[in-house]
């Protein structure tokens, strides 16, 4: 990560436009899918789509594609820790009252 001053990558307007198009399409898809009753799968699908959208935002709009690997690792760690906090709380919540 201790690279020397490198050329800043400039996000092209075409790429930005494509990403925006994808984001809007995924939003439409999220709304459409929510109209179909899939039971608990609805939440899973909605979260998968939201995660895809946020990956697009992070990768292109937030320039993560053009950053060094170190940045990608720490972003991963941040979300990993959040997942751990939520997941481990479920060791309690999901098994309360003797299951």
């Amino acid at each position: 990560m201790s690279e020397h001053h490198q050329e800043h990558h400039i996000l092209s307007i075409k790429t930005a436009g494509t990403v925006l198009g994808l984001l809007l399409a995924l939003t439409a898809l999220t709304v459409a899918v929510s109209r179909i009753d899939l039971g608990f799968m609805n939440v899973a699908v909605a979260l998968t789509l939201a995660t895809t959208k946020s990956l697009l935002v992070i990768t292109y709009f937030m320039h993560m594609k053009y950053e060094s690997r170190f940045f990608r690792i720490i972003v991963f760690i941040c979300f990993l820790i959040l997942a751990v906090f939520i997941g481990m709380t479920f060791f309690d919540v999901a098994y309360r009252h003797g299951g």
Binding site: M88, F91, D92, A94, Y95
Partner: peptide, 22 residues
């Protein structure tokens, strides 16, 4: 150290599974 917080809560009424893991 980020994975052990609930050991402060063994008597709080949380689930036995959580007590064991933490």
């Amino acid at each position: 150290g980020s994975l052990v917080w609930a050991h402060h809560m063994f008597t709080s009424g949380m689930s036995d599974t959580a007590v064991l893991i933490f």
